[in-house]
Design a binder for these strands. Sequence first.
DNA 1: TGACATTACTTGGACTTCCAAGTATTATGG
DNA 2: CCATAATACTTGGAAGTCCAAGTAATGTCA
Lengths: 176, 176
Amino acid sequence: MTARSSLPFDPIAEARRQWEAHGWHRAAPGMALVTSVIRVQQLFLARIDAVLRPFDLSFARFELLALLSFSRRGALPLSKAGERLQVHPASITNVVNRLEADGLVRRTPHERDRRTTLVELLPAGRDVLAGAMAALNEEVFAHPGVSLPEARAIVDLLREIRLGAGDFEEGGSRLP
Amino acid sequence: MTARSSLPFDPIAEARRQWEAHGWHRAAPGMALVTSVIRVQQLFLARIDAVLRPFDLSFARFELLALLSFSRRGALPLSKAGERLQVHPASITNVVNRLEADGLVRRTPHERDRRTTLVELLPAGRDVLAGAMAALNEEVFAHPGVSLPEARAIVDLLREIRLGAGDFEEGGSRLP
DNA sequence: TGACATTACTTGGACTTCCAAGTATTATGG
DNA sequence: CCATAATACTTGGAAGTCCAAGTAATGTCA
C-alpha cells in the first residue's frame, strides 16, 4: 500500500534543496508543488483502496456507482460517464465490465442512438455503494488530515489549477 | 492523455453539492479535498508524461535518474532508492530493468552485503537526464498554474497532510 | 442522396503498480 | 554454533491506465 517506513527527513524539502543547489531557481517551487500533489494523492489513494477493498471496489468503480446513483434515472451513456469522471473511454469500458460481471450495473441500449450504450445501476450496486459510501465518508473523507479551513484553502487553490488547465468552464450552468 | 473536452461546470463543486444534498456534511469538505488532489495529480502527470515521452522516460524513471544524479557516487542500493521514491520494491525492480535495458543505468553488486544490489547512473543516463530535466523544468515546473505565493501555500498545507500520514519525521537531519 | 467526417464503444497490446510468494544472504539469541 | 528471524531483491499474477486501431451508427454538406 505504498506504506513504506517513514523517512527521517522531508524528501520534498530535500529535493527542493537539490534544485536550488543546481541553480534551477525558477523551477524549484513548481517542482515542490507537483511532487507534493503527487505524493499526497498516493497517500489518499492508499487509504481509499484499503477502505474499499472489503467491498471489492476500486476508487474508479466507486466513482462510477456514485455518479450513477446521483443521476436522475440511475443510468448514463458510457461517454457521459467517462466525461464526468475524466477518464479514457477504454477505462470506462473496463470499469463497466468489472461492475457488470459483479452484477452491480448492466448495459442497456440507448433508445434513439444505437451507437450509445447506457450503464444502469442495479439494486445490488446501490446496496454495495451505500456501504462503501458510509465507510469512505467515515474513514477517509471525514478525516482528511487537515483542519476544515485548511481543506477549503487547498480546494480553492487547486481549483485555480484545474481551471487554468481547462478542466472546466467558469460559472457554467447546472445540468450535467 | 486524459485531456477530454472540458466540462461546462466544476465537477467537484457538483459532487460537493450532491454530498450536502444527501446530508453527508461532515464528509463533504474532505471529499472535495481528496478529489481535487487526485484530479490535479492527473493533470500534472499528463503534462509530465507528454514532456518526457520524447526522452523515452516515465516520471518514475526520471525520478530515479535524478535521485542517482544527486547521490555522491551516482549509485544507490535498490532498497534506498525505493525508500526515497516511496514505491514498492517490485516497482523499483521494474524501473531499474527498463533503465538498464536502455543503457542508462547498470546494476552493481554491493561490496560487503551480497544481498544488496546497487543501481549506478551511466554517462548515457546522465545525458538523457540533463535533457529531460531542462525540458521538465521549463515546460512544467516553471509554469505550475498558480502564482508563486500560492504554490508555497499549497506545498505547506500538503506538507501537513504528508506529515500527519507519517510520511516522514519532523525536523530530522540532512544526509539522505 | 451519397461520400466523408464525427461520435460511441470495444479490443488488443504495452506499461505500470501492487501483492504474495520464493530465493539468497545476513543478523540474532539461546 | 546454529536455528530462526529479518533483510534484499526477483518473479508471476491481478488490476488498472492509456493508446492505436477497428467496427458500427449518425451527422454534414455538396
